[in-house]
């Protein structure tokens, strides 16, 4: 299977275990890679998410695609810069990516071109702060500032 993938996809391909393949590609060939993988029986998008690498000032987009026939999970990764992050939609390849993309917009502030609901609220209502899953957003600080805590004296005997 890895050989077949290597024929079609240009990028760093690593076989981590018999059932996991990690594929790192450039961000402009992200959707074409997924398209090629779909042709190679990777028909199910299991998860589409992002990781905030704050040290590199980059987002890593991660798409997990699964092949029911070969029972292999491919982890497709790409890096995009953190300033004005934009990606192209993959809903034309995997229709269930729609809400994952909306979530990317809400949780990371990544704009998805071609997704009509991108940057619209999905889980949060009236959110005005930074996108919450970014590493520079401090949840503890936000919670202490916005929600009053109960003042209880705890005594340990």
């Amino acid at each position: 299977m890895v050989e077949e993938i290597k024929k079609v996809i240009k990028g760093e391909i690593l076989e981590k275990s018999p059932q996991r393949i990690i594929i790192k590609v450039k961000n402009d060939s992200f959707s074409s890679t997924l398209n090629a993988l779909k042709g190679l029986s990777f028909k199910r998008l299991t998860l589409f998410t992002a990781v905030d690498f704050v040290k590199d000032n980059q987002f890593e987009l991660v798409a997990l695609v699964y092949s029911n026939e070969n029972k292999i999970l491919a982890i497709v990764k790409t890096r995009i810069p953190k300033e004005n992050p934009e990606i192209e939609t993959i809903t034309n390849i995997y229709p269930n990516a729609f809400k994952y993309e909306v979530e990317l917009g809400e949780m990371f502030g990544i704009k998805v071109i071609g997704n009509p609901d991108s940057m619209k609220p999905f889980l949060l209502e009236g959110w005005e702060d930074l996108p919450p899953l970014r590493k520079d957003f401090d949840s503890i600080k936000y919670a202490t500032e916005h929600y009053e805590a109960r003042n209880v004296e705890v005594k340990y005997d």
């Binding site: 949780m107 609220p121 999905f122 889980l123 949060l124 209502e125 919450p132 899953l133 590493k135 957003f137 949840s139 503890i140």
Partner: peptide, 14 residues
């Protein structure tokens, strides 16, 4: 959705 959002993914990082 969103009525049960507790931000698990964020809390786990902390």
């Amino acid at each position: 959705s969103g009525y049960l959002h507790r931000a698990f993914e964020k809390l786990m990082e902390q």
